[in-house]
Design a protein around this nucleic acid. Structure first.
Length: 850
RNA sequence: GCGGGUGUGGCGGAAUGGUAGACGCGCCGGUUUUAGGUACCGGUUCCUAUGGAGUGAAGGUUCAAGUCCUUUCACCCGCACCA
């Protein structure tokens, strides 16, 4: 055995796996199937450490499951539509399609040397017409099942570039290129009826036992089920055709503390008032200049406009409340109108103090009836409080009891009705962009909006477009829009909106089961391979991507593209932490941020290497292509090999945690692998050894098998690796006999094989292992070798460790107690007295309480 | 702002409520080496050290708390057109 030259052995074993087609997935009813999927990448052009970490994790699972007798599906593809391709076309010329496919080729070439156990014959990109054509077919099917509809919705509009902006492209309320004040504009857009599934998507979360609790909680909060009261405030003077204002509240119990009724700037009444009043128009206009993001809305200063209108209190008819338009009320939630109760809602209180509106306490803490000043009293709904003159007769009750009582009371009095409300909104899928899946509908003057005929699919994107001016090139293409109406045949126009890229990623997992089918899925293949047994990806996808995929699986079931069992497509989910890195920023002539890749900067002088510009270094954040804070793993692979890179990305930090990338440490991983190689070589050449040392080595080996296996199964790869280090140290110091050492190093190679498959193959071959280690069955620990005869028990005095004793593992408690009390340290601490209490936890600890 | 998470030596981190700091990096010392590096062996939480303190901070529950509870601080993720 010569030295460890990673590049040589890695190419050799990858070729061997290829020739034996060991990773090709074929249906085999004789074995349990196991579908491992990592969230597929966006083809930015370069792989980064986050990718290496993500795919290595999936690979460890896939290889481990393969060696425990499973039939594996482990595919890879490309989430290839999206804005960066268009931005690149605008910035550097060229075409999004060539840019994207070139990037895919580059990234594939960087991924293949990692030696991942991927069935590359199933690879596809979402921008392949074969893929998005099937997506169009599903769109038509879903339209037929009433799962899609059109309505008006607000977008960010850049009045200078005359284009719709993504939230990401709005910086401090201004367009990222034009720097113009962004406006909100209403467009008619397509929507998936995901809100019809609110209850179902919420209740089904309970069944997702192998999902992280935090993800289920986040989804549940996002769906946001709440029960409340819907009722109307009658306007004292009917105005603009409105007699009343319908409101929804989750706290009807606080109705006697109401001090104003607030409506959204987008409320129909606000729009009606706007027409007659320049003041209203000015205020509403100002509100419409806000960012459309919820975070921006919530953080913005709370502002209101008194309409001068008043409404009657539904319970105390002689009371009237003013009607305000307020910028923090969302039209999309509830009825777009609320009543405020400042004593028990901080936002309402701040608003009321600002505009000098009265504050009425409706309940107090049991032991404190100080009136609310500048901090609203908002106890948990489970805490009993004292009610003041409550209309429903409440005295002492919790918030939840009060809500329930009040809803019943209001229903009985015909004031309103209890309703269940969800926060989840329908999913707007229209995008006014080129590089996405065209929405397959046609607008006909005679027939209206008509779905395209399936035989005309795919509706392909035209290639002859330019990106020299902003806006959607499909809109200004000379001929692409022209098409006969699928219904009447008269000349008509295609829809030029394309689909949200979340649509592409909401069903790719299903397509992998049959990537070349002439229908979206093949039901036999889907029935065999679904569900994904282990899905792995970033926690940043905890809500949107995963919720949309859960919806899509249901929609695909309804349209006949997935079996019933696949409506929850991911049996188990693991959310890995992100790889973070510092961000290097400069500014352009207009003061807008420009980002630089780590390899393009000089950290000693803190400048951009090429231009010498001074850098601003921003603390670590998620590696992202837009911030360019990405590290290229290729240099490690080139200098040390894929096994070192794989070992390194999993060795030091727990997979679910963020990891700050630092260059040091890769070398150490390589040293360890070289050491293992040398160890294997030495054992191959050694003779003799002491059979008396065999038992100790074998015991260590069986413990290691148990611990490494548990680490892999529990996604604690870093602890598996630590145990491998420990066993390697034991083995290298062992004097055990040659056959035992040989067996031990083979087991070591097997335990390492999911992490360092190439090195492991070489060791296996060198030690006369049979066939490929990749196909060898996983070692199983002998339970008899795990039981130790004696145990070391720490002795605590009052919870502090003072000593330890060695006792037989099966010694009865009272015997252990006697030995512990006779221990020098305990005798000294007792100082002639007797202990108050002695706690003996068998096999773990003894605590003497004095 | 709302929702979710994280916080332990110089660093990455380990620890079914039961010996805090496994394993690795770095550092220190030694052996080998012409030297450097490599390799190997030993040490390495801190302090006023026969003892004491210690898991972001403060309090609590417990025989026993990094782990459970309360309050608080800092950072990270998501917030519906980034993927």
């Amino acid at each position: 055995m010569s030295g460890y030259i990673a590049n040589e052995i890695e190419a050799k074993w990858q070729a061997a796996w290829n020739n034996a087609e060991v990773f090709k997935a074929t249906r085999d009813e004789s074995k349990p199937k196991y579908y491992v999927l990592e969230m597929f990448p966006y083809p930015s052009g370069r792989i980064h450490m986050g990718h290496v970490r993500n795919y290595t994790m999936g690979d460890v699972i896939a290889r481990f499951k393969m060696s425990t007798g499973h039939n594996i599906l482990h595919p890879m593809g490309w989430d290839a539509f999206g804005m960066p391709a268009e931005n690149a076309a605008m910035a550097i010329g060229g075409h999004p399609k060539t840019w994207t496919y070139d990037n895919i080729a580059d990234m594939r070439a960087q991924m293949k040397p990692l030696g991942l156990s991927i069935d590359w014959s199933r690879e596809f990109a979402t921008c392949d017409p074969e893929y998005y054509g099937q997506q169009q077919a599903m769109f038509i099917d879903m339209l037929g099942k009433d799962l899609i509809y059109r309505k008006k919705a607000t977008v960010n509009w850049d009045p200078v570039d005359m284009t719709v902006l993504a939230n990401e492209q709005v910086i401090d309320g201004k367009g990222w290129r034009s720097n113009a004040e962004v406006e909100r504009r209403e467009l008619t857009q397509w929507f998936f009826k995901i809100s019809d599934f609110s209850e179902e998507l919420l209740s089904a979360l309970d069944g997702l036992e192998n999902w992280p609790e935090k993800v289920r909680t986040m989804q549940a909060n996002w769906i946001g089920k709440s029960r409340g009261l819907q009722f109307a405030f009658d306007l004292t003077t009917p105005t603009a055709g409105f007699d009343d204002i319908e409101v929804f509240t989750t706290r009807p119990d606080t109705l006697n503390g109401a001090n104003f009724v607030g409506i959204s700037p987008d409320h129909p009444l606000a729009k009606a008032l706007e027409a007659d009043s320049p003041e209203v128009a000015a205020f509403v206009d100002e509100c419409r200049r806000m960012d459309t993001t919820e975070a921006a809305m919530e953080k913005a200063e709370k502002k209101g406009f008194d309409t001068g209108l008043t409404v009657q209190h539904p319970i105390y008819p002689d009371q009237t409340l003013p009607v305000w338009i307020a910028n923090f009320i969302l039209m999309g939630y509830g009825t777009g109108a609320i009543f405020a109760c400042p004593a028990h809602d901080q936002r309402d209180l701040d608003f009321s103090r600002k505009y000098d509106l009265p504050v009425v306490d409706t309940f107090f803490a049991l032991d404190n009836d100080t009136a609310v000043e500048n901090t609203a009293f908002v106890p948990p709904k489970t805490e009993p409080v004292k009610w003041v003159n409550h209309f429903a007769g409440l005295d002492v009750a919790t918030g939840q009891e009060a809500i329930d009582t009040t809803i019943d009371w209001c229903e009985a009095k015909n004031i309103g009705k209890g309703v269940t409300q969800f926060r989840l909104r329908d999913w707007g899928l229209s995008r006014q962009r080129y590089w996405g899946c065209p929405i397959p509908v046609v607008h006909c003057d005679t027939c209206g909006v008509v779905p395209e005929k399936k035989e005309n699919l795919p509706i392909e994107l035209p290639f002859d477009v330019s990106f020299d001016i902003p806006g959607n090139p499909l809109d200004r293409h000379p001929t692409w829009r022209d098409t006969p109406c699928p219904s009447c045949g008269k000349p008509a126009k295609r829809e030029t909106d394309t689909m949200d890229t979340f649509v592409d990623s909401s069903w790719y997992f299903a397509r992998f089961t049959s990537p070349h089918a002439k229908t979206p899925t093949d039901l036999d293949d889907a029935a065999y391979w679904m569900n994904v047994d282990q899905y792995i990806g970033g926690v940043e996808h905890a809500i949107l991507h995963l919720l949309y995929s859960r919806f899509f699986a249901r929609a695909m079931n309804i349209t006949g593209h997935l079996p019933e069992k696949a409506i929850e497509p991911f049996n188990a989910l693991f959310t890995q932490g992100m790889v973070t890195h510092e961000i290097y920023q400069t500014a352009d002539a207009k003061g807008r941020p420009v980002y630089h890749l780590p390899e393009d900067v000089d950290l000693d002088t803190k400048t951009v290497t090429a231009t010498g510009e001074a850098l601003k270094i921003i603390p670590s954040a998620k590696m992202s292509k837009s911030k360019k804070n990405v590290v290229d793993p290729m240099s490690i692979i080139e200098s040390y090999g894929a096994d070192t890179a794989r070992w390194f990305v999993l060795s030091d930090s727990p997979p679910e945690r963020d990891v700050e990338w630092t260059a040091s440490g890769a070398e150490a991983s390589h040293k360890f692998l070289t050491r293992i190689w040398g160890l294997c070589d030495r054992i191959g050449k050694m003779q003799g050894g002491k059979a008396s040392e065999d038992d100790a080595l074998l015991r260590a080996m069986h413990h290691t098998i148990t611990d490494v296996t548990a680490g892999i199964e529990g996604f604690a790869f870093n602890t598996s690796i630590a145990k491998i280090y420990g066993f390697a140290n034991t083995l290298s110091k062992s004097d055990a006999s040659q056959p035992t050492q040989k067996m031990a190093v083979k087991v070591l190679a097997q335990l390492m094989s999911p992490f360092t498959p190439h090195l492991s193959e070489s060791i296996w071959a060198h030690q006369d292992g049979e066939g490929l280690i990749t196909l060898a069955p996983w070692p199983v620990a002998d339970p008899a070798m795990l039981i130790d005869d004696t145990v070391t028990l720490p002795i605590q005095v009052n919870g502090k460790r003072r000593s330890e004793i060695k006792v037989p593992a099966d010694m009865p408690k009272d015997e252990v107690e006697k030995i512990a009390l006779a221990d020098q340290a305990v005798v000294k601490a007792l100082n002639g007295g007797s202990p108050k209490k002695v706690i003996v936890v068998p096999g773990r600890i003894v605590n003497v309480v004095i």
